[in-house]
């Protein structure tokens, strides 16, 4: 299952945090910054899988049976789009490559909803961001991977994406897909 979804920008400022277990705010922040440290040091040519951050590293004394390991988060997948990092923390029951596709669907849905999405959209509409995620992942289990259905689901909730007034929108063309 998926343990957490994080979105932050190139400076490590969070834009979305969703943990599928209840976690102290302070611990959340530590985890966030640990992952940011790891992810920001990676060149673009690097692969999209991170080593486990120290907070999640298995306590060395307990390399227990695989059964228990399946419950523990073991995979940190990320994708970098322009100014934003999208991170999924998941257990080994998820497929790494499929998770990359999932992030892609997430971003594509956002793009569809905001029409050429940029970080500002997400800052000002973080409620919508949560709504999109809620359509795709419930309680750590993926419920929808189809782009159309996600968009449909969000629209059905009446969360019309609102553009912030007075905020200039420059150069948002090229689409979100120029990144990887």
């Amino acid at each position: 299952m998926i343990n957490a979804v994080l979105v932050f920008n190139n400076n490590g400022q969070p834009r979305l945090t969703k943990f599928y277990t209840q976690l102290d705010t302070a611990v959340q922040q530590r985890l966030l910054s640990e992952i940011f440290t790891l992810v920001s040091a990676r060149p673009n040519s690097a692969c999209n899988f991170l080593p486990l951050p120290p907070l999640l590293a298995p306590s060395t004394s307990s390399s227990s049976s695989t059964a228990e390991q399946n419950d523990a988060p073991s995979l940190v997948t990320y994708r970098h789009y322009a100014t934003l990092y999208f991170i999924l923390i998941s257990t080994s029951t998820e497929s790494p490559l499929a998770l990359l596709d999932l992030i892609q669907v997430f971003v594509e849905s956002l793009d569809r909803l905001f029409e050429n999405v940029c970080e500002l959209d997400l800052i000002f509409n973080f409620e919508t961001l949560h709504a999109v995620l809620g359509e795709m992942i419930v309680g750590g289990v993926v419920v929808e991977t189809g782009l159309e259905k996600v968009v449909e689901g969000v629209k059905a909730q009446g969360r019309v994406a609102k553009r912030p007034v007075n905020e200039g929108r420059v150069g948002l063309t090229q689409g979100i897909w120029a990144g990887r």
Binding site: H80, N116, L172, A178
Partner: peptide
């Protein structure tokens, strides 16, 4: 500016 820039590889 950077934040508004849409997504291109850095």
């Amino acid at each position: 500016e950077e934040m508004q820039a849409s997504i291109r590889p850095k």
